[in-house]
Design a protein around this nucleic acid. Structure first.
Lengths: 334, 334
DNA sequence: TTGTAAGCGTTATCAG
DNA sequence: CTGATAACGCTTACAA
């Protein structure tokens, strides 16, 4: 069996208290004993049990991360960045993919509480507000990532999605596109906000928008494929498509190709997220970049701050998105 | 603070033993009391602490998963499948991305042991064999996923990579390709085995292979880009490329396009993994599919078996890959 | 059927 | 400096 602090103490001929003190560098220990204990720990290949430590009221150094689907490239990059940031501060990540199912979200949340995670990052769209109110009430440090927090008491890190949508609108208008279709994620606040920003830019320019050109789809292959076909079959084909995510954009490009529709000659496409898909697409996908690493940095550090001081609540960070121009949008004469 | 079993016991007017028994459905409890206790637990919104449970020698219901990089789409799909399978059996996943760094692998491994995970799935290439021997010695249930296990005492789930490479060779030869370049992952056993299988098929066909056409690259954007350029600048341009992963293949296609090299007209491409990249590539990427969900199923269930019975060791599963034909390989006259 | 008490591996308090 | 010892929240003999 794994050696315990008792084994170390016995072999070193000291008390467990002494061992504990050298482990944690607390109290005062003679250099002599310290070295002895260290040596014994080494010999026994002793590792203090985090479980026991956690039970004494300390932290678990574990953070739960709720995401919809890790195979979505944007989410994968988010997970990567969060984990990386967490690792640097000695935290470990429990990955919880809900696959967009409310039930799984509930189950995972309960599980995380049982496991006594120190904090929770929520990158799934908060649907059942009650559940999250519970987190606030119980003072469980948590932070909403890239989704609109349901309460102002929760921490949050997002980009300015409205601005992102606005940038898209501005850019497409500047390129002469007046008939633009949208494939948006209606079930994500970010999706709705992006549409909002887009509409705002049209409004300011005095351009009207045909509601029929707004299609809904999650950022999932099957759904997006259907949405893409819907756009391609619109009676009056739009000159440009604003896709809610790069994945959707890429799938659209794929469907278009199958139907012999050229991009950007026949229809321009602009995405969102600037994932690797955007870079590798043909033509390169013009898109809105999210500063993922920065977002992750703030997420972890704000959460940690909340963990240190459970009364720090409602801290928010909103970063700015940026347009990355590639070759998927062409200028049209209007 | 979170209610404990004592709070429940007190409020219900019973002993903590009774509460524990109704929680775990052990021992015999009168229906009356059971209901009472359940009600109180409900009222208090009581959740037993997994930490305390784990300390009594039970399991933590946590599995550590070591992967090189979650933003690699194949790995992401693996993670997704593993997590999904684990969730169904009540297990939770701690995600550990090593970013191909041995040191991080060490650190994570130690962390996982401290956290008393019930088992570990290793999808990173085992370099420092000693570390893994320790796992075997300590009887820590573990399983190598999609990598060659360093010892026959370890569990493993892989595909037959040699066969995968062989299929590629066979297919390309059948299409008339005699001058094929390879971009392989040399630091992964799977990469080496795929090359081996490929070579074997050439050998059987009596075709010689020019060593210069074997380029090394990890399945990462930057490295693969350089490797792609190397292939494209080969004095005698090959008629086909066998990319070690779909990501590498896609990046190659991207580089080729930039140089005005058409696919498959000027050069055919075949990938490996059958990730979403393959499907969305233009042209659709012919590739070798790995049965990811099945792999994950066996991985989790074998690991769980090892967890139940710590003496079950060295169990292996090897599944067969399959060629998926799309449009990235054309027939040539040789 | 129910409750008492020991034990799981730590930390921390408080005497020595 | 060092070492008993209680406490953390739970499970599980063992008694009652």
């Amino acid at each position: 069996m794994k050696p315990t602090i008792y084994d170390v103490a016995k072999k070193a001929g000291v008390s467990i208290a002494t061992v504990s003190k050298v482990i944690n560098n607390t109290g005062r220990i003679s250099e002599e004993r310290r070295k002895l204990v260290m040596k014994v720990m080494e010999e026994l290949d002793y590792q203090p049990s985090s479980v026991a430590v956690a039970l004494t009221g300390k932290k678990t150094f574990t953070i739960g991360v709720l995401i919809p689907d890790i195979s979505n490239p944007f989410i994968a990059e988010v997970a990567r960045a969060l984990e990386n940031e967490a690792r640097e501060t000695g935290y470990t990540i429990i990955l919880c993919s809900t696959d967009y199912q409310l039930e799984r979200e509930h189950d995972y949340l309960e599980l995380l509480l049982k496991k006594q995670v120190d904090g929770i990052i929520i990158a799934t769209e908060p649907k059942d507000i009650e559940v999250y109110e519970k987190l606030t009430k119980k003072k469980i440090p948590h932070l909403f990532f890239s989704v609109e927090p349901p309460s102002f008491l929760s921490n949050a890190v997002t980009i300015d999605d409205v601005r992102g949508g606005y940038l898209v609108g501005q850019y497409l208008l500047a390129k002469g596109h007046l008939n633009v279709a949208l494939i948006a994620e209606p079930n994500r606040s970010s999706g709705r906000l992006r549409v909002e920003g887009f509409m705002q830019s049209l409004k300011e320019a005095g351009v009207t928008f045909n509601e029929k050109s707004l299609i809904h789809s999650k950022s999932k292959v099957d759904e997006a494929r259907i949405a893409a076909q819907e756009v391609l079959n619109l009676k009056k084909r739009p000159t440009a498509l604003f896709a809610g995510t790069d994945l959707i954009a890429t799938i659209f490009m794929n469907e278009a190709r199958k139907m012999g529709v050229r991009i950007p000659e026949d229809i321009s496409v602009i995405g969102f997220d600037n994932t690797v898909h955007a870079e590798l697409a043909d033509p390169g996908l013009t898109t809105i970049a999210q500063p993922i690493n920065e977002l992750a940095y703030y997420a972890i550090h704000n959460l940690l701050k909340s963990i240190e001081n459970k009364n720090t609540q409602g801290h928010r960070v909103m970063l700015m998105p940026e347009l990355i121009e590639r070759q998927s949008v062409k200028r049209v004469d209007s």
